[in-house]
Computed example of a mutant assay.
Amino acid sequence: MTSAYRPPRDAFWFARTRTYTLFVLRELTSVLVAWTIVFLLMLVGALLGGTFRDFTALAAQPWMIALNVVALVATAFHAVTFLNLAPKATVVRLDGWRVPAWMIQGGNHSAWLALSVLIAYFIMRSP
């Protein structure tokens, strides 16, 4: 009895092309996006639970700062690649006219920038 041929698997199949590498990197950044959400939930819990001083002591640790800087970069990469993929996933038609990809991407990035500026305004303004 013969078994079917199974070619050997290459663990780094994605590294052969730039497109696949970016795809895998984007998927891996989801872990750091999840960490960012957990960190923000910890912040909210500390604010509501009265343990904000303990939270700030933990957040001031060098390893935590390094982790959050890496998470910030990964989250920004994840957001940019997600917004750039939107025209491929969504076809927008206005009165039979297909909206070009650059307009969808521009709208997405403009909305992201506007929300970021608005959030930064409320966070940075002095009380």
Rank of each mutant, 00 (worst) to 15 (best):
M1R: 08
T19H: 13
I119A: 11
R93P: 05
I123C: 10
E27P: 00
L58Q: 01
F55L: 04
W102G: 02
T51G: 06
W13A: 14
V117Q: 06
I104R: 02
Y121N: 05
L43M: 06
P8H: 03
N84Q: 12
G50M: 12
T56S: 13
L22P: 01
A101F: 07
W63P: 02
V117K: 05
Y121A: 06
A89P: 06
L32A: 07
R6T: 09
A120K: 01
V69N: 05
L28P: 00
L43R: 01
G49A: 04
V33C: 09
I104D: 00
V44D: 03
L83E: 02
L28N: 06
A60W: 04
W112R: 02
L118P: 00
L118S: 06
F52Y: 01
F14T: 03
H109R: 15
F122M: 09
P7V: 10
A46L: 10
L48S: 03
R98Q: 12
Y5H: 11
S116F: 14
G96A: 08
L85E: 09
R53A: 13
F23S: 11
A59M: 10
T81L: 12
M124W: 06
T56F: 13
F122I: 09
P8F: 15
W102R: 07
T75D: 09
N84E: 07
I37W: 12
H78K: 01
A79G: 09
F23G: 02
L67Q: 08
G50S: 04
A46R: 04
M42R: 07
T90P: 02
V73C: 11
N108L: 09
T29K: 07
V73R: 04
P127F: 14
P87Q: 08
D95H: 13
H78Y: 14
E27D: 11
A34C: 12
W35M: 10
V117D: 01
P7S: 14
R98H: 04
A79H: 06
F77S: 00
T36G: 08
F14Q: 01
V44Q: 05
T21V: 11
V92L: 11
L25A: 10
L83M: 04
R98K: 15
D10S: 07
T29V: 09
G106S: 02
T21Y: 13
Y20M: 11
T2M: 12
R18Y: 13
V73A: 15
G45C: 13
W63S: 08
Y121D: 03
P87L: 14
F82N: 00
A86T: 08
L113D: 02
M64P: 12
V99F: 05
V117C: 09
V24L: 10
T36P: 03
T36M: 11
L94Y: 13
N68Q: 14
T36L: 11
T56P: 03
F39C: 01
A114V: 15
V99P: 08
E27K: 11
T51M: 13
L48N: 03
G96C: 05
T90E: 09
L41E: 12
G106I: 05
H109E: 12
G45Y: 04
R26G: 14
V80A: 13
A60V: 03
I65P: 04
E27F: 10
G49D: 06
L25P: 00
F55K: 01
Y121E: 02
P87K: 04
L25G: 09
L113K: 06
G49I: 11
